[in-house]
Amino acid sequence: MTIGELMNTCVVECTEDTSIEEAYELLGKCDHRVVLVVDSRAHRRPIGVLTDRSICEQVIGRGRNPRSLAAGSAMETRIVKVLENEPIANIAIANPDEIAAIVVVNDRRQVRGVVPKERLAELGPSFATTNSSSRIFVNTTPRVSPAISEIPGFGWVQ
């Protein structure tokens, strides 16, 4: 089985600047409740995912009111990009528990689907094999949400 056969093909996108409220409306459009955050409408390069968990973790857990913030402040940036025709058995990720989602792309790096964190367990023990023959683009650097003082032009309601 390839990752392309397992992925959710319903992909909704927003940019970093999309308000959390607007992005949250998109969250309900797919069963897997993952919104792909892209760098821009033009390039559509995935830079993170927005989920219920990421909003709780990045915003509410830090004492912020989501009403005044954008998707970029609430997204999880630890995503892994995998080619759609890659066999699942060949995919090796060192710490799958730290991944928020797998973004499935084609040969032209266009997004084809998403595998959310909740479904990673379905991939089974073979998901964490040591076979490193697959081509994986990994962004596992945790993004530190900017301090309130660094958010230009935003006021927030306490």
């Binding site: 219920d52 968990r53 909003i55 509410i60 912020r64 009111n65 989501p66 306490q158």
Partner: peptide, 17 residues
């Protein structure tokens, strides 16, 4: 759940704090 928190605050325009 995290979904409960978001559905009943973000979706309804309420301040979760």
């Amino acid at each position: 759940t995290d979904r409960d928190i978001c559905c009943r605050t973000v979706a309804e325009g309420k301040n979760p704090l």
